[in-house]
């Protein structure tokens, strides 16, 4: 049993299905994502079938099922960013990394998620890498950023 999860589960002693979403949120906060093992464990504890827990978790965009990469990229899909071409931008990043939103590269370097609105419409189209906002990102600019990050990592690996 994963100890950090059992610590969280202990806090919710009522063991009612109402606690499911808060538990999922807290587990994701500590673990960075919802692993299979975590969901199975939560199911056992709340006496809920894991199919139901997976159903609830996949209903909400906030939950992810793969660990975040070293560089976690949020692409804003709000109205302003959409008008400024964030769809194309997302497609470019996904194709470059061979990922879909919610997924992580095999080397755990990059992960992508989409967000309904980052609240920085003036900077649209905007992305956010590890909490840092990058403004007015064209597909070309995005590819440059990705190349730089990859370059940096391969240099790190050489050292």
């Amino acid at each position: 049993m994963n100890s950090s999860i059992s610590v969280i589960l202990k806090k919710y002693e009522s063991k009612s299905r109402d606690s499911l979403i808060p538990i999922l949120q807290e587990v994701q906060e500590t673990e960075g994502y919802l692993s299979k093992d975590a969901l199975v464990e939560i199911g056992k504890d709340l006496n809920l079938p894991v199919s139901k827990i997976y159903g609830v978790a996949t209903f909400y965009n906030q939950f992810r099922f793969q660990p975040k990469g070293k560089y976690h990229i949020l692409v804003c899909r709000g109205t302003a960013c959409h008008v400024k071409g964030s769809e194309k931008l997302l497609e470019t990043i996904c194709r470059n990394l061979d990922l879909k939103p919610g997924m992580t590269t095999k080397d755990r370097m990059f992960s992508i998620d989409t967000v309904a609105c980052l609240g920085a419409c003036g900077l649209s189209p905007v992305i956010c890498i590890n909490g840092e906002f990058v403004a007015k990102v064209t597909p070309k600019k995005a590819l440059k950023i990705l190349d730089e990050l990859k370059e940096k990592e391969s240099e790190n690996a050489r050292v």
Binding site: L39, Y54, T58
Partner: peptide, 19 residues
């Protein structure tokens, strides 16, 4: 038994076993 349930939502909704 609850082997299957609804997953995802909107036009992506499906019925599927866990994971």
């Amino acid at each position: 038994v609850s082997a299957i349930d609804f997953i995802k939502r909107g036009s992506s909704s499906q019925i599927s076993p866990a994971f």
